[in-house]
Design a protein around this nucleic acid. Structure first.
Length: 448
RNA sequence: GUGAUUGUAGCUCAGUUGGUUAGAGCACCAGAUUGUGGUUCUGGGGGUCGCCGGUUCGAACCCGGUCAUUCACCCCA
């Protein structure tokens, strides 16, 4: 049989892993600097923990794990006959793969509430799984890098998370737009338009503004059952440019006004120090996950066509379903796979060879091999990344291997070298050969 | 979930209206050549044409299914 990876999953070559680690390391270093602590949670969760947290669409995309043993025990034939998946799923699968890191984190907070002190700041870099059809920038297994703080309603944290976004993407040399909005403003718009119960439908529609245009949004809202007068009112509000105007437009909605206040407070904190990336209020930003209740964020890379490479927001009630009330949280996520794809297409990965091989011994007979093996250990003890060709093969073969490994230097050991103790140290980029003893070579390569 | 797309050697790809033993370049292996050695030449190994089934005297080619790829929608990181 011909082996393949499962749909939507990938292997990573050494080169790719090194690049991915560069992203993870950059992100992690900023998280740590801002005082966040690492946690990890299991790849699988009880399905009851995950179900119902991501909306109907999310439930459909959850990977379920078939129960072990006699998993048909207790299944009603009638349910199978009727194809009653809703009833069958919990009986067939008790567990599922995590869909994101936020819900498992909420579970973690509830379970460990007596051990952690609030506000609790944690970061988590782990893979998540979604049974989505793969396409550009979308995989079935991908890493998320989450930072969240729970147990405080302070808008300082909203500002801090924007700073984290700003710092990470600046470190990665990647120009982005950090967009923000507030769910309370969207609620306010729905209230002012007289359709508070259709708020979700409204946001789904206006989220597509830049994709389908204003007419498309109007049509979508109408299709979703929003009346003509309300559509007109919403369209008017969407045209508003300044927060001041928006405030007066939403004056009839307490929630809407609160949302504007929150944004103003956050901006006040943000304005205290300069940011390198563009930060932009976007009234059309909605975000799918319906647990957000306050500020919401989304990051888009400039100069490439790619979905958002990060997102997040404040959620007031996430731990409530697990029995812990009044713990507000706010957090953002970095989409490592998409950041990778963007950095690759913009050629922004640095040429960092610090962890790569520096020296390769080329040995031309067995005696030389023994000699080189001993010298190799000395070189390694001196902290020089080095290797030896495993057998005294033809010179051609060995030097081709060196080229493939992109080693900058080779040390050639043959009978002459054994007698004189002077090794042929060759720079493969300039092709210069120097005859040096081992100590000189160590001194030279250590400095690289 | 809906609709397309592609799948031939390790890699990149040819392969005629369905017709004998499926090809090239690169890579790999061997020999020669080269000795401040990476060149060049010659030869060689390697494919159940993704998989299963069907149509046909005959299938890489046509049809169905399936697995995987890429892409759009939906949704999302």
């Amino acid at each position: 049989m011909k082996p393949t990876t499962a749909e939507g999953t990938r292997d990573f070559t050494p080169e790719q892993v090194l690049k991915r680690n560069y992203i993870f390391d950059t992100i992690r270093s900023v998280f740590v600097k801002y005082g966040y602590l690492p946690i990890e949670t299991p790849a699988m969760e009880n399905l009851s923990t995950l179900s119902g947290k991501y909306g109907e669409e999310g439930d459909r995309l959850l990977f379920k794990i078939l129960n072990n043993g006699e998993y048909l025990k207790g299944i009603k034939p009638a349910d199978i006959e009727a194809q009653a998946y809703k009833a069958l799923t919990p009986a067939l699968a008790k567990r599922g793969l995590r869909y994101d890191l936020t819900v498992p984190f909420a579970r973690f907070v509830v379970m460990h509430q007596n051990e952690i002190s609030f506000p609790f700041k944690r970061y988590q870099i782990q893979p998540v799984w979604r049974a989505d059809r793969p396409q550009k920038g979308r995989y079935r297994e991908f890493y998320q890098c989450d930072v969240d703080v729970v147990g405080s309603t302070s808008l300082v944290y909203e500002a801090e998370l924007v700073q984290i976004y700003d710092e990470v993407f600046s470190k990665l040399n990647l120009p982005v737009v950090i967009k923000f909005n507030n769910r309370k403003i969207l609620t306010g718009i729905a209230e002012v338009a007289g359709i508070p119960e259709l708020m979700v439908d409204m946001t789904v529609a206006i989220d597509k503004l830049d994709k389908i245009g204003l007419d498309g949004v109007k049509k979508e809202m109408a299709d979703r059952g929003i009346g003509e007068a309300a559509v007109e009112k919403i369209t008017q509000i969407l045209a508003i440019q300044s927060l001041e105007e928006l405030e007066s437009a939403l004056s009839a909605s307490e929630t809407g006004k609160l949302g504007i206040q929150e944004i103003q407070t956050m901006l006040q904190f943000l304005n205290s120090s300069p940011l390198q990336q563009e930060v932009q209020f976007d009234i059309t930003l909605a975000r799918g996950l319906n647990y957000y209740t306050g500020c919401i964020f989304e990051v888009q890379a400039k100069g490439v066509t790619m979905g958002s490479i990060g997102g997040g927001g404040r959620y007031d009630n996430l731990t409530e379903v697990f029995g812990l009330k009044d713990v507000s949280g706010v957090g953002v996520s970095f989409g490592a796979e998409r950041i990778y794809d963007v950095l690759e297409s913009l050629q922004l990965f640095p040429n960092d060879n610090s962890s790569s091989l520096k020296v390769l011994f080329i040995v031309l007979n067995e005696e030389a091999q023994l000699y080189a093996f001993k010298a190799l250990k000395k070189l390694r003890d001196a902290g020089v990344n080095s290797e030896m060709y495993p057998e005294p093969a033809k010179f051609d073969k060995q030097i081709k291997y060196a080229q493939k490994r992109q080693v900058p230097f080779v040390i050639i050991v043959d009978t002459d070298e054994l007698q004189s103790g002077l090794l042929r140290f060759r720079d493969l980029t300039s092709n210069q050969v120097e005859k040096l003893n081992l100590e000189e070579i160590i001194a030279k390569t250590q400095a690289l």
